[in-house]
C-alpha cells in the first residue's frame, strides 16, 4: 500500500506509523463519557474511514487520510489540521 503524502507524494506505507481514527480531542474537562468515546469506542466501519498517519521516515507530518477499510482504496489525503481536514 502506498499513501499519498501531501508533501512527499506517494510513499510506501512502511514509512508511516498508523495513528488511528481521526477524532476531535475532547476538552480536558469534557467528562468521562466524552473521553470514553474518544479513547475507546469506535464506529469501526467496513468502508471509508478518516484516519491519521504519521510520516516518520519522511517529512514527519501527520496526515489525515480517507481510506476504505474493505478495499484499501485511498480517496483523500491532506495535512492534519490543514485545509480540508476534519
Amino acid at each position: 500500500m502506498r499513501l499519498p503524502c501531501p508533501i512527499c507524494g506517494p510513499r510506501d506505507s512502511r514509512e508511516f506509523i498508523y495513528r488511528g481514527t481521526a477524532l476531535d480531542r475532547p476538552a480536558p474537562d469534557a467528562g468521562t463519557e466524552a473521553w470514553e468515546e474518544y479513547l475507546h469506542l469506535r464506529d469501526n466501519p467496513a468502508g471509508p474511514i478518516r484516519e491519521f498517519w504519521y510520516h516518520h521516515a519522511g517529512c514527519t507530518a501527520w496526515i489525515e487520510v480517507t481510506r476504505n477499510t474493505a478495499t484499501h482504496e485511498i480517496s483523500d489525503a491532506v495535512l492534519a489540521g490543514g485545509e480540508g481536514a476534519a
Binding site: L41, R42, N44, A46
Partner: peptide
C-alpha cells in the same frame, strides 16, 4: 471480527477496531 457491525444494529459502539 464483525462484532462492531452487528452491535451497531442494536445502536451500540464497541471498544473494538478490526
Amino acid at each position: 471480527g464483525r462484532s462492531s457491525q452487528v452491535a451497531a444494529m442494536a445502536g451500540l459502539r464497541l471498544p473494538i477496531e478490526s
